[in-house]
């Protein structure tokens, strides 16, 4: 989910291409991934497994786990990662689809 960004970026750093839920984004290379996604206008990083409510970064220091994203099949905290070219970032699957037989 991407809207006009509620955030302003002060630094101009070389940008690299990556994707979030299939959408191509150009984010500052080496910057904090959660901050860069927020600044690019990504509103909700994921939906909760309990009620499906949207969530986005809350603490930015690796404590709250609200900024969880899935990269290469591993669910990780976006605020503890850095932007790299080619990352394929997904919202973690919270639909329970994993439990169904293939």
């Amino acid at each position: 989910m991407k809207t006009a960004s509620p955030f302003l970026e002060l630094d101009s750093v070389e940008r690299v291409e990556l994707s979030f839920n299939g959408e191509l984004l150009h984010l500052p290379d080496g910057s904090n991934l959660a901050a860069a996604l927020l600044a690019s206008g990504v509103d909700a990083f994921r939906k909760t497994p309990v009620s499906g409510a949207p969530r986005a970064p809350f603490c930015m220091m690796g404590a709250c786990f609200d900024c969880l994203v899935e990269i290469d099949g591993v669910v990780q905290q976006a605020c503890m990662l850095e932007v790299r070219a080619g990352l394929e970032i997904m919202s973690p699957d919270t639909t329970g689809a994993f439990d169904e037989p293939a």
């Binding site: 970026e9 002060l10 500052p28 901050a35 927020l38 603490c59 930015m60």
Partner: peptide
Amino acid sequence: MTAGAGQILLKQSGVLA
């Protein structure tokens, strides 16, 4: 977000609300 998160965005990333 927490105010601390706001500060972290500003310090580390130069990102302002």
